[in-house]
């Protein structure tokens, strides 16, 4: 039995009087890929942001390994160093070159030597085939290239878990494939990933488990096989028929 890396326990979150997460329980085990699916506004992004402590939960707790990270006494910066997150867009810092984007976190937050961080960045870029873009600035890259750089920038921090929030949904369909390739590669290296996505076929291919989120609650969790072919909940079935046509 692989160990649990990240665990959410009855997590609640409201914005004003709108309750967005209504008690989420989720366990993420080492090396697992979890896909969050659900309608727009169902709370996928909010859940990911809570897991990374970018949002403060209103109730419930979140555990990273054996540490309760919702404890207010915790060093949130330290937690975030081991939980990477990539957003839909605007991930990269436009005033820094691709290389400096990747080097910044390891140098400033982890205190690594610049030379080491530099070598690591070059190697990471090489792996995604963007070594020749090291000196370029983000706006000179295509959307797909930007998202791939954002992925390796998160990886440069050597996180325990990687959270991905619909990282392909702002992309031209032609560019989605390259980004998904990088996620496949990360998976095969044993990275633990929680990703919100609207790419159902990709979720089906890559997920170990699929989580269907509906109005701030987990309606159903299962293997992709089960969720996509034999959903237990009628709401899951309805969502999928609407989605898959």
């Amino acid at each position: 039995m692989a160990e649990t890396v990240l665990r959410a326990d009855a997590v609640r979150k409201s914005f004003g009087d709108q309750e967005v997460l209504k008690g989420i329980d989720l366990e993420v085990t080492q090396g697992e890929v979890i896909c969050l699916i659900g309608a727009s506004g169902s709370g996928k992004s909010t859940l990911l942001r809570c897991l990374n402590l970018l949002e403060q939960v209103d109730d419930g707790d979140i555990w990273l390994d054996d540490q309760e990270i919702t404890d207010p006494r915790i060093d949130v910066d330290k937690v975030r160093r081991s939980v990477g997150i990539v957003f839909q867009a605007y991930n990269l810092f436009p005033h820094l070159s691709v290389l400096d984007n990747i080097v910044l976190g390891p140098v400033k937050a982890l205190g690594h030597k610049r030379a080491d961080a530099h070598d690591q960045a070059v190697e990471l870029l090489d792996r995604i085939g963007l070594a020749d873009k090291a000196k370029a600035y983000p706006d000179a890259l295509s959307g797909g290239q930007q998202q791939r750089v954002a992925l390796v920038r998160a990886m440069a921090m050597q996180p325990k878990v990687l959270l991905l929030d619909e990282i392909t949904s702002a992309l031209d369909p032609m560019l989605v494939g390259d980004v998904l390739d990088v996620i496949r590669a990360l998976r095969s290296e044993g990275m633990t990933i929680v990703m919100a996505t609207h790419e159902m076929s990709f979720a089906r291919e890559i997920a170990d488990r699929v989580v269907f989120l509906c109005e701030g609650q987990i309606e159903e969790i299962g293997t992709p096989e089960q969720i996509f072919t034999a959903p237990r909940s009628p709401r899951t079935a309805e969502f999928l028929t609407r989605y898959l046509g």
Partner: peptide
């Protein structure tokens, strides 16, 4: 998101 990205890197 620039803030969030920075904080997410542990800065």
């Amino acid at each position: 998101t620039q803030w969030a990205s920075g904080r997410a890197l542990g800065l």
